[in-house]
Design a protein around this nucleic acid. Sequence first.
RNA 1: GGGGUCGUAGUUCAGUUGGUUAGAACGCCUGCCUGUCACGCAGGAGGUCGCCGGUUCGAGUCCGGUCGGCCCCGCCA
Length: 590
Amino acid sequence: MGELKRSHTCNDLGADHIDQEVTLMGWVLRRRDHGGVIFIDLRDRWGISQIVFNPELNSQSHGKAHVLRSEWVIAVRGKVTRRPDGMVNTNLKTGEIEVMVNELRILNSSLTPPFPLDEDIEVSENLRLQYRYLDLRRPGMADNLIMRHKACQALRTFLNDENFLEIETPVLTRSTPEGARDYLVPSRVNAGKFYALPQSPQLFKQLLMVAGMDRYYQIVKCFRDEDLRADRQPEFTQVDMELSFIVEEDIYRIAEGVMTSLFAATKGLALQTPFPRMTYADAMERYGCDKPDTRFGFELISLTEVVRNCGFQVFRTVVEKGGQVKSINAKGCASFSRKDLDDLTAYVANFGAKGLAWVKVKEDGEWQSPIAKFFTADERTAMATTLDAQPGDLLFFVADNAVVVRSALAELRLELARRLKLIDKKTFNFLWVTDFPLLEYDPEQKRHTAVHHPFTAPVEEDMALLETEPGRVRSRAYDLVLNGTEIGGGSLRIHQKEVQDRVFAALSIAPEEAADKFAFLLKALELGAPPHGGIAFGLDRLMMIIAGRDTIRDVIAFPKTQKATCPLTDAPAGVARKQLTELHLRPDWQ
RNA sequence: GGGGUCGUAGUUCAGUUGGUUAGAACGCCUGCCUGUCACGCAGGAGGUCGCCGGUUCGAGUCCGGUCGGCCCCGCCA
């Protein structure tokens, strides 16, 4: 670069800078070579400036400019001038001016890029990941990373003002039972022993509370060796926090403050607080899931009692066997075609529904439906009343056990909203889901497992049920849901050893196993653990929603493919035999 | 572990019922062009139709397998 020093970025210049001598550096986005005058759109992280090579002004740099191609890296020195009348580009922030180049330095050439960097051209994701450093030059992707940075800055400022300490916890730690599959790291120094990468810093942040740190947070990588999805990566980032001497309301206030500061910084939006709340039981009843998208209606309505003794054998049998019949009234959807209905039936089959009964309510109130004939007029009236069925409505029914009914209808509800384009992308509906059950029965393991995690405090008044009806014990856990995506969750923790012992017992974790795996936690609880609790947000999911993307890969600089590989580095990869023997590993493959 | 979907030029895609030499746009290369901004004009190069096998006189097209991308179920306290 010689003595050249960048004076401005490619987004800085405007009418205020006219006649100034400036130096810009960046990448060649496009060149328009007229034989005489040559225009180059110069791009950097901040924006685009048009630079002009005019043979009459400086024939030497103009001569040099002919070789410039896409993505060459250059520095130019020249004078800012107002563009001629009628030549202003209103699509560009710097469109009022251009830089007449006196001196061109070619800092680096570039091969022809393997894919165009134009924003509007879709490129296969595999290729984008293989050349991620080119993909990230595209303004949309760069903006996502910039926005992520702003979000982190905003929440750091907010939490700092709220007296939080940012403290790091170990990445090499020990595997604990329960939860997701661990990523393991063999120990060289301790033959046959392994570290595990943390699924979350859960126990360490609790120990920081015992340590008297009072308020902790961390923007931290977590690792779970499970299959990937559009919103799940094997390594992901949590905004993790924990507080002492607090109750649920304190957490809600802090979390709402974090979200408010974050949305102000990234979207310039003022969120309404406090966020609405809904109990887990209500969410399951009305939406069939614990993370309802409240941007549209189509709530689930129970017909179990209405059809208990009805003439339709399928419904009656399901109810007799202890199952449920629930319905969605798709308002105004009676115009759905037979194919629409077949598609939706096939769709809910993915979630276990053996069928999808439907009724079209015609203009005269009559039912057009394959199942209409099985119901008496009175039964039809009772159903119509319960469902508030009006002419033009389309009623869907699923009859099965509770799990199938709610998951099928919850997914049907979302699919209907997508098909009918009911979802407003500019709406951000937050929702606290509260009063989760503490435990749920796992028929495979033939024992109860923790709905949240084993350190979640039970609701005081339900404690007596721990030994008698563990499935009915409510927990002091809460999730934060945004537009139907779980973006965070947490709980008040158990801070007394006796309570922790009782919960371990309810989880069928033997005292010896608890002592082996959690001795350090149990000991800490006996050494002055304060009441405490916390919450963790999924930063990737949050940024995905804020950026309006469909996958968290678009807000992660270097994400993995669905097979958990990295096309850029070709990780994971084999290692030398010697590395394995040092780690006391003797593989039986190869 | 399972279901779905895609794979053709550097990129994004088209490719009829299985039939001659596999096309388009953009990009790339050469030349021309002094006010463009997705500059324009003329010409040119560029293909193991993911891979393997099968059916057939003949396969980008049909069949089987396999590899890879994506979406989903299971899984993810």
